[in-house]
């Protein structure tokens, strides 16, 4: 049976049980999360659950190896981030989001075209899930079986 992925919504396949951090989470706690889980990024949410940013492995690496990065690659923002002591200070604001109603095919297209590996799923500014390329591949494999 041919599956029309334009009719499959993001809400159907996203990961709903998301490990998040709040704006006040300390760097030490964030590093511990990266050690404990194997996720590539952690959404930063307010106390009300609104998505305000994302902390990726890239950011953490940049902070940990800041002094080793060639000076030409140190931007003003990366320097400011290196001084941050909580999630608010190091997160990347304005992450890419999709709505739960977006279709799987259009979200996959966004990810493929622009090398985005995961998107936050947001409903009325509140984080409701995460969708990664791996989730999409798993779903497609499952439906082919």
């Amino acid at each position: 049976m041919v599956v029309d992925y334009a009719k499959v919504s993001v809400a159907e396949i996203m990961t709903r049980d998301v490990v998040t951090v709040t704006e006040d989470t300390t760097i030490d706690d964030i590093l511990e999360l990266f050690g404990r889980y194997h996720y590539h990024s952690y959404p930063v949410v307010t106390d009300a659950g609104e998505l305000v940013g994302i902390i990726s492995e890239d950011i953490v690496l940049e902070i940990l190896l800041f002094k080793q990065i060639p000076a030409s690659r140190q931007t003003h923002l990366s320097v400011v981030r290196s001084l941050g002591d909580d999630a608010r200070g190091i997160m990347m604001p304005y992450p890419v989001t999709v709505s739960p109603d977006a279709s799987l095919s259009e979200t996959a297209d966004l990810m493929l075209k622009h090398h985005v590996y995961r998107v936050s799923v947001v409903d009325c500014e509140k984080l409701v899930g995460i969708l990664s390329k791996r989730d999409i591949v798993n779903e497609i494999c499952k439906r082919r079986d």
């Binding site: 890239d58 604001p93 304005y94 992450p95 890419v96 989001t97 622009h114 090398h115 985005v116």
Partner: peptide, 12 residues
Amino acid sequence: LSSVPIAKIQEV
């Protein structure tokens, strides 16, 4: 543009 997420995708 700095607060438009799609315009700030890392690759772009």
